[in-house]
Amino acid sequence: MESLFLQQVVNGLIVGSVYSLIAVGLTMIFGVMRISNFAHGDFSMVGAYIAVFLLAWVPGWMGWVGSLLAAAAGVGLLGILVERGVFRPLLTRWTDLDQIMVSIGLFILMENLAQLFFGATPRTLSDPFGGVTVNMGLVSTSAMRLLCFAMAMVIIIVLEVYLNRARMGVAIQATAQNRTAAQLMGININLIYAVTFALGSALAGLGGVLYGTLFAIYPTMGAIPTLKAFVVTILGGMGNIRGAIFSGFILGVAETLGGTYISMEYKHAIGFVIIILVLLIIPNGLFGRSEK
C-alpha cells in the first residue's frame, strides 16, 4: 500500500528543508543589513559548482562531505568579498532601490561568469549511495534525498544553537533588532555585517550543494532558489530566522500538496497565493517581521 498523500508530504519536506536552508541565509542578511540580495541563489550556484569540481577530483563520500565544507568556506569567503566590495559602500550612502539594482546586477554578472567559465551544459552530482532507493511501505524515496534532508536539518539546528548561544550569534540577532543599540553596546557592526554576510552566503552555498544533489547544476540554476527564498522570507516575516525555517517547510509541502490536489499548473503560483493571503491577513508574515 502506498499513500499518495504521505508521499507528497515527504517530497515536500525534503525540498522544503533545502528551501529553509537557503532562505535562512537570505533572511539573516536582510535582518541585519536590510539588504535584499537578489543574487542569493547564485551563491548557491557557486556552492554547487564547487561540489562539481571537488567531486570530480575526489569521488564518493569523502568528496561529498568535503564539498559541503568547501562550499561553506568558499561561498562564505565570496560573501565576505562581495560584502566588502559591493554592499558595504552602499549601506549608508545608497537608497534601497540602488541596493536592489546592484544585487540584480550582481546576479546577472554571476550567471554570465558561470556561463563563461563552467559552460551552459547542466551537470549532476554523482550519488555516493549509488542511487539506493528506500521503500518504506507507504512512501518511497532515495537514500540521498533522505541524507540531504538530514543534512539540512543538522545545519539548521547548528545555526539555531549558534545564534542563540554563541556571543557572536546573539550579537548578530541584537544587531538585527536594533543596529544603534548594538553599536552602543560596543558591538563592531562592520564585523557583524561581514560575519552575517559570510554566514548567510555559506548557508546559500551549503543549500546549493544539497539543491544540486537533488536536482541539477547549471549557470542559471540560482533563479529558482532565489525566488523560493524570497517567498519563504516574506512568508516567515522579513528577517525572521525561525519564521524562515518553518515557512520553508510550509512552502515545500504546500507546493506538493497543492500540485497534487489542486492543480499542477499552479504549483509555482501556490507560494505567491499563500504570500498574498498571508500579507492580506497578517501583514508581518506568519511569524512576524524582525524589529525596527
Binding site: F215, A216, T256
Partner: peptide, 13 residues
C-alpha cells in the same frame, strides 16, 4: 526550467 518533478511523478506512480 523546473527542477522538482517529484509531485507529478508521485501522481504518475
Amino acid at each position: 526550467g523546473d527542477t522538482d518533478f517529484t509531485t507529478q511523478i508521485s501522481k504518475l506512480k
